[in-house]
Design a binder for these strands. Structure first.
Length: 327
DNA sequence: GTGTGTCAAGCAGAG
DNA sequence: CTCTGCTTGACACAC
């Protein structure tokens, strides 16, 4: 069982999501942003390894406008060695990474243009995994999409598009149950038709379900992952912020709820992505709880993990690199 | 430096 | 019809 957090590490002074406005697009800014993002990503992964956090969701904007027609810069070849170095580090340290393309990726849209742009975004994110040399156990996580007033038809459209996806995307795609539209049951139906694994979100399941007890839901979702080609099932974990709007995540890990959740696993193995506002802080507490239960994977034994080369993208003298916080 | 309107992209539901 | 939330943050310009 690996523990992870999404995209941002608040304890560090760099971001892997440097970007800029479309209006100020230039090749120079692409190069500077990608170099800075990959450098920061490497530092975050090293930080994670040192802390025993072996799961990480990489943000969608490592390459600004990565699937936008404006970006014709050949970043795949320009940064090939940097992506490869990151991938080597990930494999050497037994890390797991994933992407969560954002809400604009809607494979079941009735609009062919939206579907086309969605696939382009998935191809962009999948190509980063290819460049890192990672296999199909590194996942691209999306939701089913919109309802458009007809649930069955909406599910059928997803299945039809899924069958047409390029292999680099299709073999990595997983679908997450959401909190308002498509439940675990809907995702299971989709799995029956397409074979797509279900990335289970416990909090969404609490918001939208058909009476399946948590332990049963966990078992059903885990069974949709192929042990070798998909790897250990991934999950998103969070819980309701008390007194807030339904669906709002907590700011902090609520340890007794998390403990009770672990009890429901009954020996099932998951890699857990903690969707909690304070990110790595809660992830570290989760690791501590797992260790207390003898569940956490041990960090790689001595003599210490291979180091990443110092600065991805030698051209990385990014003029806008973030200076260390100063007071 | 600080404040703040806005950002490539979709959809549903609340008000 | 407009605004909000979604994994939300942070860019960019005015002051």
């Amino acid at each position: 069982m690996k523990i992870g957090y999404p995209c941002v590490n608040g304890s560090m002074d760099c971001s892997a999501g440097n970007t800029f406005r479309l209006a100020s697009y230039s090749e120079e800014r692409v190069v500077a942003a990608v170099a800075a993002n990959l450098a920061c990503l490497g530092r975050m992964l090293e930080w994670n390894v040192a802390q025993g956090l072996l799961f990480f969701r990489i943000g969608s904007s490592v390459v600004p406008f990565g699937s936008h027609p404006v970006n014709v810069f050949p970043w795949q070849t320009h940064f090939a060695a940097d992506f490869r170095a990151l991938g080597d580090y990930i494999k050497a340290n037994n890390l797991r990474v994933s992407f969560h393309p954002d809400q604009f990726v809607v494979l079941n849209s009735p609009s062919p243009a939206i579907v086309r742009r969605s696939i382009e975004e998935l191809v962009y994110q999948g190509s980063m995994l290819d460049l890192m040399g990672l296999d199909s156990t590194a996942k691209l996580q999306i939701h089913v999409g919109g309802l458009y007033g007809d649930r069955e038809l909406a599910l059928r459209r997803f299945a039809e598009v899924y069958a047409t996806l390029p292999a680099a995307v299709r073999t990595r795609l997983v679908v997450e149950n959401d909190d308002r539209l498509f439940s675990l049951r809907d995702c299971l139906a989709l799995h029956e038709v397409t074979g797509v694994p279900i990335l289970f979100d416990n909090f969404h399941h609490e918001c939208l379900n058909h009476g399946e007890p948590m332990a049963e839901a966990l078992r059903l979702a885990a069974a949709t992952w192929h042990p070798t080609t998909d790897g250990v099932p991934m999950m998103d974990y969070s819980s309701q912020a008390l007194g807030e709007r339904k669906g709002k995540h907590t700011d902090d890990l609520v340890e007794d709820l998390f403990g009770r959740f672990l009890d429901q696993l009954h020996g099932l193995d998951f890699d857990l992505m903690l969707e909690i506002k304070n990110k790595e802080i809660s992830a570290l507490r989760a690791v501590a709880m797992l260790r207390a239960r003898g569940l956490s994977p041990t960090a790689p034994a001595q003599p210490g993990p291979p180091r990443l080369p110092p600065a991805p993208g030698a051209a990385a003298n990014s003029p806008r690199a973030k200076a260390p916080a100063r007071t």
